[in-house]
Every structure is written in C-alpha cells, then in structure tokens.
C-alpha cells in the first residue's frame, strides 16, 4: 500500500459512491427504524404541520394482528422449508451424476444452467400456461371450452385424473405444488453450478481410498462426498433460505399481481408481498414488516451458520 501525499484524493474517488450510498442505503436504514417505531406513521400525514406520532410498538402489533400477515408468513415459511431441501438434494444428486460422466458432460451442464438466465416473470407465465386447466375460457359464442392443459395431459398418461392447479376453485395444496415446482426449477441451476464446482475441486485420493476399501457407492456418497462438500452445501442452503424468504416475483409470474388464483387473491402472498402492499400508504406498518423480515433472515442465517460450523468439515 502506498502512503499517498494527498489523503483527500481517496475521498474524491469515493465521492460518487458515498453520496449515493448515503441517500439510498444509509438513510433508508435510519428512516426505516424511525418509521417502524412511530405508530401509524405515513408520509402523507407526516407532511401536515403539527401532526405527531407516538413512539411505540403499535406498528409491529398491527402487522401481527393484521389477518393477511399470518398467511404471508405461513406461505413464506412453506416455500422455504419445501423448496430449499428439495432443490438442494436434487442439485446434489445431479451434480454428483454430472461429475461421474465424461461424454456429453458439458452439454448437460449447459442445459441444467439454462433456467438461470431467464426472466422469472416471463417463464412464470409459461408455467402458468402449462398448468392451466382451462386452456381458454371461451370457445365460440359464449361457449365455455374446457381443455386439460399439458401437465394434465402428461399425468393423464399415468392414469391420473386432471387436477385444477391454478384456476378458479383450485385447492391451496395444488397452488403450493405449482409454486414449489417452479421455484425448485428456478433454484436448481445456481445450486448445481456451486456444487459441481465443489466436486471438481475435491481431492480424488479420498475416492481412491474408498474404492480400495470396497466402500459402497451410497456409503461413499454420505461419508465422503457430503462431508467434503459441506461448505458448498451450507452456502447453497443459506442463500436458498435468504432467497426463499424474499420470494415474490415467481408468484407474480404464475398468479399475477393478485398473488392468488382468480377469486381468491392474496392467498399465496408472501412477506415481501405484504411489505409492497403496505408501502404506498402505510409506511410505518411496511417498515415494521421489513424489520421483522430482516430479523427472521438474520436469525435463520445465524442458525444455519451455527449448524454448518458444527457439521462442516473443512
């Protein structure tokens, strides 16, 4: 490092970043804390001279008592605890298999990475079309036309009756299924990329030793591969949880901005969706919800780190 003759020069280089960070990062942190603890705070009311807000936990109370919040929290938890284990396990299996083949490896790797470079709203619309039971509501003049949709066609091959996945009157379980399929599909590429990268850097000697000892493949997988990969597994689980708690646009992609099937809006709303709903008119409540979200993410990350520290083998 060089002792500069002009220490102020560094600040000139940093000036644009600092100004923008102060306005769009530092101030929001301070302001969110302030708004969250001012009861019933909203920006419109705050501009009226003489209006003051009580300091207290009113916003947090409102968030928790507000009916929609528990739905949002439940949906978000469900997304996390279903999609993270499923996608991590699938990605691990696929990565291990990819690592064990030579011909076509690169081509398959590319295919598995494809969902990453997509627009989650756009491809959400494709998933919606695939699961749509009523391909199109209207046939001819006022005639209701019911078609099965491609997914129902496929499960029909196996003798399963068509299921109403996302349309009017669909069940919550069916909605969640579609959501989980889409989120897992979306989450796989990143996890495969990280886990395959980890596998390729694992020392081959461990496997040779296992082979000499005649260890079975399943045992090798659980006793060698998983422990050696544990730092990468911990990484994809943590980022998966953080992503899961912030899930929003995948659901907009499938169900539209109503966040639910027609006739039952907000049924699949998430924590982030809750914040956006309150954002324009109830900034106090939105801030409190954002702090709760941050708190949950923080706690879950700490638990994950703590568990992985105990379980990780470096």
């Amino acid at each position: 490092m060089v002792e500069s003759k002009h220490p102020w020069k560094a600040w000139i280089y940093l000036a644009p970043a600092i100004v923008l960070l102060l306005i769009f990062t530092v101030w929001p942190i301070v302001n969110t804390l302030r708004m969250a603890f001012l009861e019933n705070y909203n920006i419109m009311a705050a501009t009226v001279p003489g209006v003051t807000f009580n300091v207290g936990l009113g916003n947090f109370q409102q968030v928790i008592q507000y009916g929609g919040f528990l739905t949002c929290l439940g949906n978000t938890m469900l997304i996390c605890f279903l999609t993270v284990p499923i996608s991590t396990f699938l990605a691990l299996i696929i990565a291990v298999c990819l690592n064990a083949i030579r011909p076509l490896q690169r081509m398959l790797q590319t295919i598995f990475f494809l969902p990453y470079v997509t627009n989650s709203i756009a491809i959400g619309m494709v998933f919606a079309a695939m699961f749509n039971m009523i391909g199109n509501n209207f046939g001819g003049e006022g005639e209701l036309l019911i078609t099965a949709g491609i997914i129902n066609n496929i499960i029909g091959i196996f003798g399963v009756e068509p299921i109403n996945w996302i349309n009017v009157g669909s069940s919550y379980a069916a909605n969640v299924f579609v959501m989980v399929v889409y989120i897992v599909w979306n989450a796989l590429p990143f996890k495969i990329l990280i886990l395959l990268g980890g596998l390729q850097s694992v020392n081959k000697q461990y496997y040779d030793a296992a082979k000499v000892d005649g260890t079975s493949r399943v045992r090798t997988f659980w006793r060698i591969t998983v422990p050696l990969l544990s730092p990468m597994i911990a990484y994809v689980v943590i980022t998966g949880f953080i992503g899961g708690f912030k899930e929003y646009s995948s659901i907009v992609g499938i169900f539209g901005e109503d966040m639910g099937p027609t006739g039952d809006p907000r049924r699949l709303n998430t924590m982030v969706g809750f914040i956006y709903d309150a954002l324009a008119n109830h900034q106090g409540r939105a801030s409190a919800a954002a702090l709760i979200l941050f708190g949950i993410i923080f706690v879950v990350t700490m638990i994950n780190l703590w568990v992985s520290k105990k379980k990780t083998h470096y």
């Binding site: 990062t25 929001p28 912030k246 982030v272 954002l279 939105a286």
Partner: peptide, 18 residues
C-alpha cells in the same frame, strides 16, 4: 449492508424519489 434485504430500502427510497 449486503445482509439487509432490499425491501427494507425500497420503502424509504420510494418516499425519497417521490
């Protein structure tokens, strides 16, 4: 600051840009 979810900034930024 990278740990903080972006939504936390959005609320204030929405007010700021307004």
């Amino acid at each position: 600051t990278m740990m903080i979810p972006g939504e936390l900034f959005t609320i204030t930024n929405y007010a700021t840009i307004s």
